[in-house]
Design a protein around this nucleic acid. Structure first.
Lengths: 233, 233
DNA sequence: TATAGTTCGTGTTAATTTTACACTAACTTA
DNA sequence: TAAGTTAGTGTAAAATTAACACGAACTATA
């Protein structure tokens, strides 16, 4: 058994992989929000936002807090990803990191003009800069989890604005899963689940036919989920 | 950013949910291996095997070590499950627990006659005794993960002996997923994947027709997996 | 104000996959 | 040798998925 409360202890940090998606891009991509470190170690390098857990908060709370403190992002979808514990992942001393991943609508959370571009920046996941610590591994793990998750849980909507078009939704799935879908078949499937509601609005502003706007009916999903319904794309 | 290495720190423990399955039972059930605590807190209560991470090992290593030390189980399938951090989950002081789940063949790991039944015992997951700390929550989380995982990754085989019959495999899936499968359809599907190899042996000893023995072809699975193949039940 | 350019929205058919379903074979025990 | 039990096998109907093309609606600009 050997429980003892007097072992030396690692520091315990949380790090957040924040995925953002901008449906307005022509060739949309997943993005991740990185922070430029202003202290050692890895001073000046890009890193995932994060920090140490406090003794009066849970890890979930610590992740949400760091997210807000470092990037202003709050009230978004966030879930625990994995705990990383390579003994040398921090060059100074032992730090175990509990990684989280968050999904945000990049449009809503695009960095305001006044923001110091040196402090925080979105990078497309295919063109990440070198990252501090083992953060590259963390991002990779988060991507794999997102790809797995998106197929059987409707989390993709978290990456879109509240109102979105079916084409935007399709582009999102095509981006994440790196494949294409047939437009009519995709719509048929989404339609059948009955999880989308027309808002009445239209997406205008582009030189082509306007598209209907929908929102995700999360109440209905929760109800269906209880009866064993499984979303699957 | 606010990285600092001088915060107060929680203790960091690992706990293991060990799932075992005995194909010889008439109404087979999933089991979990519990340890009786011989020190405070929760002295005398059942708990998941676990202990503190050491400064020179990873969490994976700590989990494997505790598993072996406390139950003798080694070289089995094990993966990180989730990190639990409720501030009051340990009545003494702050302890964050990284939970793992392991899958073992209960037959191979049944407690040898000499073992002190007071020290370690298998419980069917539907009849768990009260558990120390938040270990009940951990088991519940592990079960959910196992149910989700088993459907799209061939981990079920880890719960069976190296050689098993198709009926045993079917009973395993029916037990975990709490549903039944049609015998012919089940076999057809498994057959199509081409992941089972006849060993030539037969399961004898029961007063009925002997059944062919198979083993899981993990090499073939790994090869297929690389090309995007997804096992799905 | 007409035309070119672009995305939106829609239905049918064939192919594939999934489901439902029942009997004989093989072995053991009495 | 008969009774009891599990092993092993195929086919047809139903449901799901995949393939495929064109008119509608909107904007910009000629």
């Amino acid at each position: 058994m050997s429980y003892s409360y007097n072992h030396p202890r690692p520091a315990l940090a949380v790090d957040c992989v924040i995925f953002g998606f901008d449906h307005r891009e022509e060739a949309p991509e997943l993005h991740t929000l990185c922070i430029k470190r202003n202290i050692e170690p890895f001073k000046g390098k890009w890193a995932l936002p994060g920090g140490f857990m406090r003794m009066n908060e849970t890890l979930d709370e610590a992740a949400a807090r760091e997210l807000k403190e470092e990037t202003g992002v709050e009230k978004v979808y966030i879930e625990q990803l994995y705990t990383f514990s390579a003994p040398d992942r921090d060059p100074r001393e032992r730090v175990v990191a509990v990684a989280y991943f968050a999904l945000v609508n990049l449009e809503k959370h695009s960095l305001s003009a006044g923001t110091d571009a040196d402090a925080a920046q979105w990078f497309s996941v295919s063109k990440l800069p070198p990252l501090a610590f083992d953060h590259k591994t963390i991002v990779k793990t988060a991507l794999e989890r997102l790809r797995g998750k998106v197929r059987y849980q409707p989390v993709g909507f978290e990456l879109l604005p509240d109102e979105f078009t079916l084409s935007e939704l399709q582009a999102l799935y095509e981006t994440i899963l790196e494949r294409t879908f047939d437009k009519r078949n995709f719509r048929k499937k989404i339609d059948n689940y009955g999880l989308l509601v027309e808002t009445g609005g239209m997406r205008r502003g582009k030189p082509n036919r306007a598209a209907k706007l929908y929102r995700f009916d999360s109440k209905r999903y929760k109800a269906l989920e209880k009866h064993g319904f499984i979303f699957e794309l």
